[in-house]
């Protein structure tokens, strides 16, 4: 700069940190000093560009799975829920496949040290659906977008809601540990459902993803049925 004004002073001017007399004096100076005018012009343009920069940037991968594992206070183990699932039909190398893998990976159920775990891992004595509201009327969806999946989703939601109501009505009969395990697993399954929905919205047209979502809903229904049966037999 070839004038007496320090650049820091122009910073303060642009940031609105000068007193009124200082500001007026600076503006008089700017009328005659092109160097300072250009500096002010740059600083204002820089701030305008900074203001326009996106406030949100998505990381290159979903960080939730790792984070969830780090915050989980409960021991977890992999459970092959009756060996079902369309994941086996799919490759997992594509981006879409990674979404599917993520959705499937979420189905890691929480177990407890007590015997109640057996009830949620395929006890053959349990007959899901017997005498309980649930799967009736909910068929296999033929869909590749969330819009197409909506009718099936409504059906699942209705059945799930009925089972939740039944379970909630009976929750007093459950010991706290069992209730904790049930709630923890419902959260796991709900997370899987949300991921599958997100995958469908991200990759519309992939009918396999609708199968993943439907499978997750069925798992939730089945789990709720088992929980209700557990209460009935306790």
């Amino acid at each position: 700069m070839n004038c007496s004004i320090r650049e820091e002073h122009l910073d303060d001017y642009v940031d609105g940190m000068l007193t009124e007399p200082q500001r007026a004096e600076t503006e008089r100076h700017l009328e005659s000093c092109e160097t300072c005018r250009l500096t002010v012009e740059f600083l204002r343009g820089l701030q305008a560009t900074a203001d326009a920069m996106p406030r949100e940037i998505k990381p290159s991968r979903d960080l939730w799975a790792d984070l969830e594992a780090r915050i989980s206070p409960t021991r977890v183990m992999q459970v092959d829920f009756r060996g079902r699932g369309p994941l086996a039909l799919l490759g997992v190398r594509s981006v879409r496949g990674q979404w599917v893998a993520l959705a499937a990976a979420a189905l890691v159920l929480v177990v407890a040290s007590s015997g109640i775990t057996a009830y949620f891992m395929g006890n053959p004595e349990l007959d899901p659906g017997a005498g309980l509201p649930g799967l009736s009327g909910v068929g296999e969806p033929v869909a590749s977008t969330m819009e197409e999946f909506r009718p099936a989703e409504i059906g699942y939601a209705k059945a799930i809601d009925d089972l939740l109501q039944t379970l909630d009505d009976r929750r007093e009969a459950l010991d706290p540990e069992t209730l904790t395990v049930i709630e923890a697993n419902l959260r796991v399954i709900d997370a899987a459902i949300r991921r599958a929905r997100a995958a469908i919205e991200e990759y519309p047209g992939e009918s396999e993803l609708a199968l993943v979502l439907a499978d997750n809903y069925r798992k939730k229904l089945e789990f709720l049925q088992r929980a209700n049966l557990l209460i009935e037999r306790s």
């Binding site: 940037i57 998505k58 990381p59 709900d190």
Partner: peptide, 28 residues
Amino acid sequence: GDTAAFEQLYRDNIGRVYALCLRMTADP
């Protein structure tokens, strides 16, 4: 202790948190 609720908080805020961390570190 509801991790599902916390996941939603994560999804609602991760973009802003990551943008901050990325710009402050310049290391993805």
